[in-house]
Design a protein around this nucleic acid. Structure first.
Lengths: 353, 353
DNA sequence: TACATTTCTTGGAACGCTCCAATGACTGAG
DNA sequence: CTCAGTCATTGGAGCGTTCCAAGAAATGTA
């Protein structure tokens, strides 16, 4: 009843509304206000209502730092941002961050970005955030063979979820990943269906988990379709010009389709084709991986495998929060299928009229 | 001397090292340890060394929440992530985030991501973060006419820096922006130098600050070069297909170059050219804006204006921290010149042999 | 009406740090 | 040798919250 601010909040005072102030106004103890927020079932309905009214009227919001200090939980999720290789690593990183941010928010958490030096897999930055209680856990990405982070985090009982499975023999912790082999297989199916016979693969140098997996998917699919494999596999680092060179060699073998391990490699294939006066799709089919923005922009549009970044991000957050809530639960692994985004670059081969 | 952990840190105990524990070990009061960290000049050199040794030996790191609670500064910078329009709004957003993260880190701050609904300019999410003392200030982006955030933040004395100037008459707060008009002017210079005479402009619908600015830059440059303006300006929403349609009309006017307000629009122009059997660069020059990854990938490469995202991010953080340190300082505005990344799409016009 | 039981509410302490004011040690001047 | 004036260090309180254990009120039972 008294004259109060318009039920909005901290506009007026410099200070800020505290639990104690709300308590005084509602005529209860601070603890009761705390309970009204964190364990409302403990309050008598009529008390609860009175306290809630006071909270609303005063626009009270708990001080995060005070809560963190007391509960030892920051409700923050750490995500390390690499220094360089901005374009290289993940052309679709922002989609991932969006998904992380939104899913986390729905669960009352937020994302804390921190810098990790260059391509290093340094543990120090993670260590720091844990030591000063800045975060409750981590989401990792760009994991690869020889990544020491999972083992280190597990050893220190720090919750984490990785976007990217463990490629080493021993599985550590929770992860979400995309089934690259299955995706590439789907691309091969698609090409075979449209009549392509010599389906080449342009991948990364052997040794990377995801790269080898995609290559396997290609080989398995060819076998399934009874198509030839020999001499149709080539390798290049993830760079357009390097890929172009290698793609030229594949064209020399008479390939009528080139399945690539990434959109960048596919763009290299595009260049090789152009150089030979050929058109992607019409003359030789090309497929990529990632569905980066460029895939839809180029002409002809690039058929490529789209990773469900929104689902990936959401699942990463879900698994992480589950582990924070229950540190000893069984590790959970989620393997998602990429979606084949069909565009003009995978048209049927030109009929040999 | 005593047996101590390997000068590394929190590996062992579940708890964690506190100021008091360090103090006991160093034989000083907690306050002195605090001073050793925050005001080392107050200590006698020999004491300082002793305390530092203890800190190192025990791997002590101050508890962030406790510091935040006491000092009322979280050392966190808020950045709102839009729900949708992921690809649309800023194709280069991840570079910006990288820059923010790294500059912030160097200054002892970190970036806190939070979700803001759809395209809305809602203030509620900002309000919340301020009310619960989660952040010390904000970096804004995707500002535009009618954006209420700056005025609201200023009114509430909340520090912020915007990537994007104020387009309304009254200037509020600090901002960093890219001089779109100058950039487009540079593109026109470049084309004129190479002999293009009918330089068209493909921009966004009137009303957006950045869009109108770029259009003005085009017009001014044409005047400067004594080139014709009439009938050479067209508008389209930022979508490849929509741009394609509009670009076709520009080609009908006999334009020999199309300067675009974005890379997306430029890709539309590419399609229009192809449809007419023309080649970008060889037949009609095309330039874009943003230097999105796609610009380097397409063939021919797209000449475009690169925004120095690393500098922009760094300056945003710098201005923000300066304002946090000194709330009443004069607002500072930084206008950066984009760099013209010349590729094949702006080759000289084919000689009329 | 008295007592045991359940339900609701509260006081006090603590999380780990830094603020503030005060104490002690140390200099140099009178 | 005393005293004012620095310099270095310390004690105590408090930031705003939640934990814990204990108190008060309401309910049920004999």
């Amino acid at each position: 009843m008294a004259r109060t601010p318009t039920s909005r909040s901290s506009s007026g005072k410099a200070g800020g509304v505290t639990l104690a102030m709300v308590a005084r106004r509602a005529g209860v103890s601070p603890q009761t206000v705390s309970n009204a927020i964190n364990a409302p079932e403990l309050l008598r309905p009529e008390t609860l209502e009175r306290v809630r009214a006071a909270i609303d009227a005063m626009g009270y919001r708990p001080h995060r730092a005070a809560q963190t200090l007391r509960t030892r939980s920051s409700r923050l999720i750490g995500y390390g941002v690499q220094s360089v290789d901005v374009d290289r690593t993940t052309p679709v990183m922002d989609r991932f961050l969006h998904a992380l941010t939104h899913t986390a928010e729905e669960a009352g958490h937020r994302i804390l970005l921190f810098a990790v030096p260059a391509g290093s897999r340094l543990l120090a930055p993670y260590q720091e955030l844990v030591d000063d209680y800045s975060v409750d856990g981590f989401v990792l990405s760009d994991t690869d063979r020889g990544d020491r982070r999972q083992a280190w985090l597990a050893k220190h009982h720090i919750p984490f979820t990785a976007f990217g499975r463990m490629w080493s023999d021993k599985q550590i912790g929770d992860w979400v990943d995309v089934d690259g082999a299955a995706g590439i297989g789907r691309a091969v199916d698609h090409l075979a269906e449209r009549g392509h016979r010599k389906v080449a693969f342009l991948g990364w140098p052997r040794g990377s988990g995801a790269g080898d997996d995609r290559a396997e998917g290609w080989k398995a699919a060819l076998r399934r379709h009874g198509l030839p494999v020999r001499g149709l596999r080539a390798e290049s680092v993830d760079d357009v010009d390097a890929a172009r060179t290698v793609a030229l060699r594949l064209l020399d073998t008479g390939a009528d389709a080139i399945v690539c391990a990434s959109d960048t490699l596919a763009m290299g294939a595009y260049r090789a084709l152009r150089e030979r006066g050929l058109t992607p799709g019409d003359d030789v089919a090309v497929t990529g991986f990632d569905d980066s923005p460029a895939a839809a922009l180029v002409s002809p549009g690039l058929t490529t495998l789209a990773q469900p970044m929104d689902v990936i991000g959401a699942e990463c957050v879900r698994l992480l929060l589950a582990r924070i809530a229950e540190p000893d639960r069984e590790p959970e692994h989620i393997l998602l299928e990429p979606r084949l985004a069909v565009r003009e670059s995978s048209a049927p081969p030109r009929p040999l009229m």
